[in-house]
Write a protein that binds this DNA or RNA. Structure first.
Lengths: 299, 299
DNA sequence: TGAATAGTGTCTATAAGACAATATCGT
DNA sequence: ACGATATTGTCTTATAGACACTATTCA
């Protein structure tokens, strides 16, 4: 119950109506923005320009403006500022949902800060620009922060990452600050408890595309079944059987609907032109696309 | 990113280190405590003793103590205070998880209050006692606040509610304030946005027992398959096929494990003594117990 | 004895996954 | 022609749900 101490004792009465009599708690929003770049799952990070954790990478976010915006509005505002989507109505195509709140009293060394985390799925966006007071912004492969990192794709999983030289490709972060340390090295733990928040966001994302059509939020308006499969493979970190996936997607009512068109050009390595689809009107997938079990899955 | 404006301009610097320079936001926790009483799903409500919404029913909760407790600790503390479980380690058997945060600037008329909602599953508890400053506390059937109210059980759904006279039984709330209006009448909308929070909690509960063994949290240490089925029927608001349910539960690895014993006395209306089980060690159900689809389900 | 419940067996429809086959397109 | 991908077909196995049947216990 909110403000429940009102009117009980004099002190509580005052407290309820003059919250400054309490030690204050600050409220921020932090956003786990996920996107796909070259078939690899990336998260948007910013480099802190001030103390604490100066110079470290962190999730984008900021204070909620008291009395002026809801939590979702604050998250959308911060997201627009950090992704440079403020201009076009580009945010329409971004999925944004609340992830959870983090409020350990010591998570920020300065004071008690409660952070309401949001999770966003975005289509491939332009390079990040350091918005506001950040010293840099970058799309970083989540693998570097993921304890459940994608192991090498079980099979047929090569050749999808674009070909540079030969070994495993580790795309460098695109950052507006050329001197930024690449996140993901030894000394690059995320600021605050953002590693926990990111891990929770990844868990949520992996679960959510099982029973919702939100994987389509990573793609453009029109897409092929193969591209959609690429989303699942990148988010789950495993390769999927092309034939079974194809039939499964088309069999779930409302998941995708045909546009009638076909891709202008086939895949980079040949093959027929794939048919194009757009997201359907389903909000839930029935039946769901269950993740293939991992050997060491929780029972 | 928390406290991100630190060091950018003088004003922002000060703001980050002296948050009282900002308009403050208060942080509370509110808890949706669900339990089963006589096979009916109930939620714990308290009657507000002060303004605003004085006299209305609300979810139990209260302010987070800045710098002294985490969100989960605050929720556990409030839960103990309101359920009278503070004494025994009785909270051990209660499942408590974060539900979500609610922060519309106008949700509390006095100031901007962000509420972090928690969801609790409790076994049958003693009657509620008005803790702290509440004017009353009561276990109330959720049906009265549930837009997706359980329709009459599809079949075989009678006779389970205990028999008073004949018609549909509407148990009165057990409250320490005998003059309290029974919640659920016309003029009994919950305070604040608590109707929304309760609805979200019910949605979460209904989904969660599908893929986790948390339905066992509504029961005692040992229980029969029939009692477990009663939990599902009460939470989902539909009756389930006894035979199929029985086989299904026993076939999911780690859901329940046999104690070897049998119930001391059979069901109220005859039948053999059922075998007893306790919760297994699974954290997720594989495969899940899917809800029977409703005719008007979202596609 | 009759009613109600516990527990098991059987059968059918659906879905998941393995594998195969064919068609199409770039190089 | 070759290699890769798109799409469809087939077969096997697992699962959900409907229904039936036996055993047990209270009234």
């Amino acid at each position: 119950m909110d403000g429940r101490h009102a009117g009980h004792t004099e002190a509580e009465f005052l407290a309820a109506y003059d919250p400054r009599a309490f030690d204050p708690i600050a409220v921020t929003v932090d956003i786990v923005v996920l996107t796909l770049r070259q078939e690899v799952l990336h998260v948007l990070l910013v480099r802190r320009g001030g103390q604490p954790f100066e110079g470290r990478w962190a999730l984008p976010g900021g204070f909620v403006q008291a009395g002026r915006e809801s939590l979702a509005e604050a998250a959308a505002r911060e997201l627009a500022e950090e992704t440079g989507l403020r201009d076009a109505g580009g945010l329409d195509r971004v999925h944004l949902e609340q992830l959870g709140s983090y409020g350990h009293p010591d998570r920020d060394p300065r004071m008690h800060v409660v952070s309401v985390a949001y999770l966003a799925f975005a289509p491939d966006l332009p390079d990040a620009t350091a918005g506001g007071d950040a010293a840099g912004a970058a799309w970083v492969p989540v693998e570097r922060f993921d304890p459940d990192a994608a192991r090498p794709r079980p099979h047929a999983g090569d050749g999808r990452n674009g070909a540079h030289g030969g070994g495993p490709v580790r795309p460098s972060p695109v950052t507006t600050d050329p001197d930024a340390n690449a996140p993901g090295s030894e000394d690059d733990a995320l600021a605050f408890d953002h590693a926990t928040i990111l891990a929770d966001g990844l868990d949520r994302a992996r679960a959510k595309i099982e029973y919702t059509p939100l994987a389509t939020a990573f793609l453009g308006e029109e897409f092929t079944v193969g591209q959609l499969r690429g989303v699942y493979e990148a988010v789950w970190g495993r390769s999927l059987h092309a034939g079974n996936f194809h039939r499964k997607v088309l069999s779930v009512p409302g998941f995708v609907e045909s546009t009638g068109g076909t891709a202008s050009r086939p895949g980079a390595r040949g093959g027929p032109r794939a048919r194009l689809y757009r997201a359907g009107d389903a909000r839930l997938l029935h039946p769901a696309l269950l993740r293939p079990e991992r050997e060491d899955d929780v029972r």
